[in-house]
Amino acid sequence: MTLSMPSSLPEATVFSSSSPREISSISLDNVTLGYSRQPVVEGLSLNLQQGKVNILIGPNGCGKSTLLRAMAGLLKPTQGSAVLQGKELHKWPRRTLARALSFLPQAPEVPENMTIGQLVEQGRFAHRGLIRALTAEDREAVSWALEQTGLLDYRERSMRTVSGGERQRAWIATALAQQASILLLDEPTTYLDLGHQLEVLELLQELSTTQGLTIALSLHEINHALMFADSLTLLANGKLLYSGPPQELVTTGLIESTFAIRGQYLNIPGHGPLHIATSSQRRKNPLPLARTA
């Protein structure tokens, strides 16, 4: 199996690139977000680039998850507006929104008594509604999502017994099965080994180039962000520091100052610049040598 779209791909997942699709991008305009009056993100404006991979990076607690939750319409901005197709996100009916946009929170709780196949079927709720039985289209979408995440043989496994990586891939498959044109993922590579991390990122990239999906995800691994982002957004303390192509971020020196690290860029032909962090700026008193001896 290769990552080029398989011929068995269900009709619905192939978003034909010839017919102009609706403008499916989220734009945040001067939003302030927060929980119980304490703003986490203040006065931030951001447009997701349509049909591209948008990656959010930033130190812990900078507001990445909050921003993604706002984009998913789960958190209503206290000020400003979050708009999809000209309509504020929180005004969308949930099911209609779920057909346009899918969101995967960071490390969701594991449901009991559910197999991977059953979980991925839950992703079809937005299409099936309350009554409709599983159609051929639904089944194909589920199989396709499982196939993309390499979980086809894991359908009948219980979510409680599989490994952390399989669990995470099952959640990603669930979001894929939703077949929305916008995909928001909060640190989707957590719990995955390096091979699976790259695999997921390549899959997302593939989805955006071949099917025009708009993808936004947060990541901790800067090099993955540099490699896969069409548009990179750097956040710190709820403020937007940079948003644009990754190649230009490299020239600003913002990565070093934001993450308080020292390091160097390394140019790999065909991949662009990668960042090698060599030391932290924060640590002033390393462990006394006597301790380690």
């Binding site: 949930r94 709780e109 309350l130």
Partner: peptide, 24 residues
């Protein structure tokens, strides 16, 4: 109950997940 079957199943997930799968 037949109407509630799927929503109740989704309600076993986290609220954020259930919401983003399209459940109010």
């Amino acid at each position: 109950l037949p109407l509630l079957r799927r929503p109740v199943r989704l309600l076993q997930l986290e609220d954020d997940c259930a919401t983003s799968f399209g459940l109010s």
